[in-house]
Amino acid sequence: MDFVFQTEGLTKRYGNFLALDGLSMHVQGGAIYGFVGRNGAGKTTLIRLLCGLQEPSSGSFTLFGVQSGSRDMADARRRIGAVVETPALYMDMTAEENLRQQYLILGLPSYEGIRELLQLVGLSDTGRKKVRHFSLGMKQRLGIAVALAGDPDFLVLDEPANGLDPQGIVEIRELILKLNRERQVTFLISSHILDELSRLATHYGIIDHGRMVRELSAGELEAECRKCLHLEVTSISVLSRLLDGMGLDYKILSDTEADVYARVSPTDLVLALSAENCQVLSMQEKDQNLEGYFLSLVGGDAS
């Protein structure tokens, strides 16, 4: 499989605090990878290591196939655009001047494309207004525009929806989807707004206490979160036979538990099982979204 970024046993320690604990993750080329975790789970630390702002304590990663610590890593990093925590901006400059700075830093031959970038993020009419007078959402959008300068192949966005109003969130979502589809830009997005992330991501990585709890594709997540009837019965073989006979989709979880993925009348099912001498011990309807799934994995409050 073609991975843009993957880590192996990545560890970062600050004194006694273990921010990343042997983290392994895999970001496929062309994916929109949703990076989910509580505050302090290690999301931003991982992004800092990826961007070369900090060095790992142990473990390694590859970026575009280049091993960490290699001399070619600088070239690989030049293919990244990033917004880490807060957008990278000079407050006493205009939006256009900030982009010009980024163009100079990247050594781009001309300022062509700046207007297009400003238009893309909806800031083309800010004129001589200094960034210090921008709203949080405008700064966020300009930060994304700065990260997009130089047409990166891999865009890392740390909480991109921070400070954006609903309209801004929709615009950024559409921008991400457009870049992903039209320019095949790979995204790594960390976000707390799980509902928003679930509208974008093609893959998920769920991190807790510096460890990867689960990596899965959007399809796998959908399968795991499908609306279902969770049954606990005395005989799973009877239940299985009965469901096969009804032509229903189901998944056996243990000797006594199964999930049934279909609209089925609980009364009819209980009566049918009872007729076969199988008792229903419990029955529960499950309807999870990403947030519920995340909480079921890491437990507690999603914040």
Partner: peptide, 18 residues
């Protein structure tokens, strides 16, 4: 110090070899 307060240092470090 503006590089640190504004965060542009991250873009600069991404762009340099060393």
């Amino acid at each position: 110090g503006d590089d640190f307060s504004g965060g542009f240092i991250r873009m600069k470090l991404l762009a340099v070899r060393r």
